Every structure is written in C-alpha cells, then in structure tokens.
Lab assay of single mutants.
Amino acid sequence: TGEEYIAVGDSTAQQVGDLTFKKGEILLVIEKKPDGWWIAKDAKGNEGLVPRTYLEPYS
C-alpha cells in the first residue's frame, strides 16, 4: 500500500536502485525518506528511488 503520485517530469535512473519514469506516469510511493528521495513502484511493478521534486499528489 502507499500513496499515488503523478510524475511532473521525466527522470532517468542515475545509479542502481533508481527508478526511471516518464512525465504523466502514476507512481505508488511506498516510503518517504527525509533526504528527498522516495521509494516508489510503477505500474509494471518496478521499484526504486525517485526524486520527490518530480512528483505531485494524484487525485
């Protein structure tokens, strides 16, 4: 379980453990880390770190 967020920009994984996503994708945020990198899952079930500045709450 988690909260749904929509990507407001494209982000390409810079290192192992990062999640690549495109603008408009809905991501499920699993954990919000205080350093600004959140753990999220995409629609295909891929999981990784995403920069919170690229996400907005999805409603």
Rank of each mutant, 00 (worst) to 15 (best):
F21I: 07
S59V: 13
T20W: 08
L55C: 04
F21L: 04
T12R: 10
K44A: 12
L49S: 08
Y58P: 05
W37D: 06
K44G: 09
V8Y: 04
E25A: 10
G2S: 09
G36D: 06
L19N: 01
E31K: 10
I39F: 10
T1F: 12
G2H: 11
V29G: 00
G2C: 14
E47D: 05
L27N: 00
E3W: 14
S59F: 13
K22L: 09
K22C: 08
A13G: 14
G36N: 05
T53G: 12
F21W: 04
S59G: 11
A43H: 10
D42E: 01
T12H: 12
Q14E: 12
E4G: 05
K33E: 03
I39W: 13
E31P: 00
V29H: 00
Y58S: 07
Y5F: 09
E25L: 02
A7T: 11
E4C: 13
D18I: 15
G45A: 03
A40L: 04
G9N: 14
G24Q: 02
L49F: 12
P34S: 12
E31C: 12
D42A: 02
L55T: 01
K32P: 03
L19R: 01
K23T: 08
V8L: 13
K32A: 04
K44M: 12
Q15Y: 10
G45H: 03
V16N: 10
V8Q: 06
T1Q: 13
A13V: 08
K22E: 05
E4M: 15
G36A: 04
A7M: 05
I30K: 05
I30Y: 06
P51D: 15
I26R: 05
G36F: 04
K22H: 08
K32G: 02
D18E: 15
S59C: 12
K23F: 06
K33N: 11
K22V: 09
A13S: 14
W38K: 00
Y58E: 04
V8A: 06
E47N: 05
G2P: 12
P34E: 13
I26C: 06
W37M: 14
Q14D: 10
A7N: 01
E3F: 09
G48S: 02
F21C: 03
Y54M: 15
G17W: 07
S59M: 12
W37L: 11
T53C: 14
T20F: 08
L19S: 02
L27I: 07
V50A: 05
L49D: 04
A7C: 11
K33I: 06
T20A: 11
W38H: 02
G9H: 15
L28N: 06
G48E: 01
G24A: 03
Y5I: 01
T20S: 14
N46K: 07
L49M: 10
W37Q: 09
N46T: 07
A43P: 07
D10Y: 05
N46C: 08
A7Y: 09
G2T: 08
E3M: 10
K33P: 07
D10K: 03
G24I: 02
T1I: 14
T1A: 13
L28C: 10
S11K: 14
W37Y: 12
K41P: 00
V8S: 06
Y54V: 09
G17Y: 06
A40H: 00
V16Q: 11
P51Y: 15
D35A: 03
V50G: 01
A13C: 11
L27P: 00
S11W: 15
K44E: 10
Y5E: 00
R52P: 15
D42H: 02
I6K: 06
L49V: 08
V16D: 12
I26Y: 04
G24P: 00
F21P: 01
K41E: 04
I30L: 12
G24S: 03
D42R: 00
L28F: 11
A43M: 11
T12W: 12
P51F: 15
A7L: 05
D35N: 11
V16K: 12
V29A: 02
L55E: 02
I30D: 00
L28A: 04
L49Y: 12
K41F: 07
A40R: 00
Y5T: 01
V29D: 00
K22S: 08
L19F: 05
I30R: 04
Y5R: 01
Y5S: 00
D42L: 03
E3R: 09
